[in-house]
C-alpha cells in the first residue's frame, strides 16, 4: 500500500521514466532508422515532461501577471529591478531568496505602476505561479530536439538515397557486400 502511495505521489517521475525507457528501447533495438528517430523523439519528450513537471506547484497558475503589465514597466524601473537582483545576490542570500526578493520587488514596482494608472492594486505572490524558468529552458530544449530530429531525418534521407533502404541490417549488409 505504501508502495502504491509512493508511486501515486511521484507519478510524474514514473511516467517520464516509462516514456524514457520506451524511447531508449526504440533507439537501441529498432532496426528501422526512422523508428529509431521516433524513439529519440519520445526520449527527448520524456525529458521535457520531466522538466515541466518539476516546475509545477499545487494551485499555481501560468506565470503571466494579469494584463501582462510586467512588460510595461518603464526602463528606469527595469534598471532598479536589475540592481535589486544584484543586491540580493551580493547579500550572500541563496538563489531562492534572491529570486523571491526580485519577484517581490518586481511586484511592488508593477503595483506602483498600476497605482499610477488608476487601477486596483494587485497582490502578487510568487507562490501563485509555476516556475517559469523550466518553461524557458524547455522551449530551448524543444528547439534543440527539433533540430536534432531534422538532422537525423536528413541523414536518413541521404542513407536512403545511397542504399535504397532505411533498414539498418540491410545497409550493413550492403556495406559488407561492397567490400
Amino acid at each position: 500500500m505504501e508502495f502504491l502511495q509512493h508511486i501515486a505521489d511521484s507519478f510524474n517521475y514514473w511516467i517520464f521514466i516509462i516514456l524514457m525507457m520506451i524511447g531508449l528501447y526504440a533507439m537501441v533495438a529498432k532496426n528501422n532508422l526512422v523508428k529509431k528517430l521516433i524513439g529519440m523523439s519520445i526520449f527527448q519528450t520524456a525529458i521535457i515532461l520531466f522538466y515541466v513537471s518539476i516546475g509545477y506547484k499545487e494551485n499555481a497558475t501560468i506565470p503571466i501577471l494579469s494584463h501582462a503589465l510586467i512588460h510595461e514597466v518603464h526602463h528606469e524601473e527595469a534598471g532598479h529591478y536589475k540592481e535589486a537582483v544584484q543586491e540580493a545576490h551580493h547579500d550572500e542570500g541563496n538563489a531562492a531568496e534572491a529570486a523571491h526578493a526580485a519577484a517581490e520587488y518586481a511586484a511592488e514596482k508593477a503595483g506602483k505602476y498600476l497605482e499610477h494608472s488608476d487601477h486596483a492594486i494587485l497582490d502578487i505572490n510568487p507562490d501563485d505561479y509555476v516556475n517559469p524558468l523550466v518553461h524557458v529552458l524547455m522551449l530551448t530544449a524543444i528547439v534543440v530536439g527539433v533540430a536534432t530530429l531534422g538532422v537525423g531525418l536528413a541523414i536518413t534521407q541521404k542513407l536512403y538515397g545511397e542504399f535504397g533502404t532505411v533498414e539498418e541490417s540491410e545497409i550493413i549488409e550492403a556495406i559488407k557486400f561492397e567490400k
Binding site: M27, V28, K36, F43, A147, I155, K158, L159, E162
Partner: peptide, 27 residues
Amino acid sequence: LTSYALIAMGPKRATLAAFKYLIMGTI
C-alpha cells in the same frame, strides 16, 4: 549537430556512422 553533419559529408559508410553517432550523442 554540426559534427553529425560534418561526418555525414563523407562517403557512404560515413553516413551510417553519422547516424549512429547521432543516436548515441543524443542519448
